[in-house]
Nucleic acid binder design. Structure first.
Length: 417
DNA sequence: TGTCCACTGGAACGTACGGCTT
DNA sequence: AAGCCGTACGTTCCAGTGGACA
């Protein structure tokens, strides 16, 4: 053991303090519990549709709607797990493949995942989609099985790549002799239907189910149950559960958020060697989570997006009444020149602003200023000081710090000129 | 009432890149 | 090695928008 290694004391402290957790993973979003409180109706409904499989029928394709953390994915996985067990009791074959289109967000990627779930080896890139699709269909039809495909965040793939793959998947049953497939699309965007090809829509949404957000009391029940699995006895004060539930209920009843709060609060308490999780740890957890999400997004942004964000930051820093696309572009252009980076076109920058808006770092709203045109009104949506430190962690952006007074002066001159 | 501003956002296209097939 | 494929990222072009203003 090296005496001067600071990590030694960290590890030793960690090992010597008793853990508060019995099963930490029970608070992770991927965990599928045995019981899902307040989702009986949804479970029953999904079960009824999929039960067709138990009499060798093809279940209708299903579209599930609901905001994040309303239990869509958990219900789906839960029901399919049970269905699979029941099928094998009856000697029927059933496979299911879960694909999160947020992670696998290309048509090719989806097809590749489907192939892999049938034990086919496919290259990361290089094959034509049609070739991949033929391979998949052929491999599938070798089995006498029902193949259920769950496409989580299906709106993402439809929006980004068009509905080609969805269309093909909804039609594949007509070409299959032995196997059958059934689709479950999960989406948190209610408007996504509008952008779909009507043919795809009608076959994908033979059945539809909307998942309402959890209410604070329902979240409390969920948390209660999970906390019992996750923590050792009498670690969590009852008020902690209520606070987590209340905070998450405020954010459209997101159970994932509530569980995250509880887990991080537990981890913070544990790290400080405490044997109780109190309300103050929940509040601290809230800050940690918010900061981490923004930090991760900002630091992983490509340089051009960081420059656009820096330009918005700069304008916000100058306390302008209104920040619009044109101003952002001018400022961004100057920043690029300062760094010797080739500036993008305004068209592209407009898209980058939309992307930053989607990520929740800025708020961009299209407004009509009459004679003064149509543009986007932009505001920074996160803490300005934090944003600065996150941006200037990038060495290139840091070089722009000296540029701030110069830019301010230039802008003032423009105002008076 | 018509004009005009400052963009938006869709569509088509170009380029670079990694990786497969032949 | 050549040809092909999918993806990412970007450009160019252009019709459309809707409220202020003359």
């Amino acid at each position: 053991m090296r005496k001067d290694d600071p990590l030694d004391s960290v590890f030793e402290t960690f090992l010597s303090t008793p853990t508060l957790f019995k099963e930490r993973d029970a608070l992770r979003p991927t965990y599928v519990p045995d019981r899902l409180p307040h989702r009986d109706q949804q479970i029953r409904y999904l079960g009824q549709i999929l039960a067709t499989a138990l009499k060798s029928g093809i279940p209708s394709n299903i579209l599930l709607y609901g905001k994040t953390g309303t239990g869509k994915t958990a219900v789906c996985k839960h029901v399919l797990q049970r269905l699979k067990e029941k099928s094998s009791e009856l000697g029927l074959s059933l496979h299911y493949c879960y694909i999160n289109c947020h992670i696998v967000d290309t048509n090719y990627g989806v097809l590749r995942n489907l192939c892999e779930s049938l034990d086919l080896n496919v290259p990361i890139t290089g094959l034509a989609k049609s070739v991949l699709f033929t391979k998949f269909r052929a491999a599938l039809d070798l089995r006498d099985t029902l193949f259920v495909i769950i496409l989580d965040e299906v709106d993402r793939i439809a929006r980004k790549n068009g509905d080609e793959t969805l269309y093909n998947l909804t039609r594949v049953n007509t070409d299959l002799k032995k196997a059958k497939i059934s689709l479950i699309g999960i989406s948190n965007d209610l408007k996504f239907k509008e952008s779909l090809d009507p043919r795809v829509l009608s076959s994908l949404s033979e059945e539809e189910l909307v998942y309402p957000p959890y209410k604070a009391l329902e979240l409390k029940d969920i948390l209660d149950e999970r906390a019992k699995t996750a923590f050792c006895e009498s670690i969590v004060e009852p008020s902690v559960i209520s606070l987590c539930a209340a905070l998450a209920a405020r954010e459209h009843g997101d159970a994932r958020r509530a569980l995250d709060l509880l887990r991080v609060a537990g981890e913070l308490a544990e790290r400080e060697g405490k044997n109780k999780v109190t309300e103050s740890y929940v509040r601290a957890a809230k800050n940690v989570i918010e900061r981490n999400t923004v930090l991760e997004v900002v630091t992983t942004l490509p340089l051009q997006a960081k420059l656009v964000l820096f330009a918005i930051y700069l304008l916000e820093h100058m306390e302008l009444k209104q920040i619009v696309t044109g101003e952002v572009y001018d400022c961004y252009y100057d920043c690029c020149r300062e760094l010797g980076v080739d500036p993008l076109t305004q068209r592209r920058v407009s898209d980058l602003i939309n992307e930053l808006d989607m990520l929740g770092i800025v708020n961009a709203q299209v407004v009509n200023l009459g004679r003064y045109g149509r543009t986007k009104k932009i505001r920074v949506a996160v803490h300005l000081k934090q944003l600065e430190s996150m941006l200037t962690a990038d060495t290139q952006i840091a070089r722009l710090r000296d540029f701030i007074p110069q830019f301010k002066q230039k802008h003032l001159n423009q105002l008076h000129g």
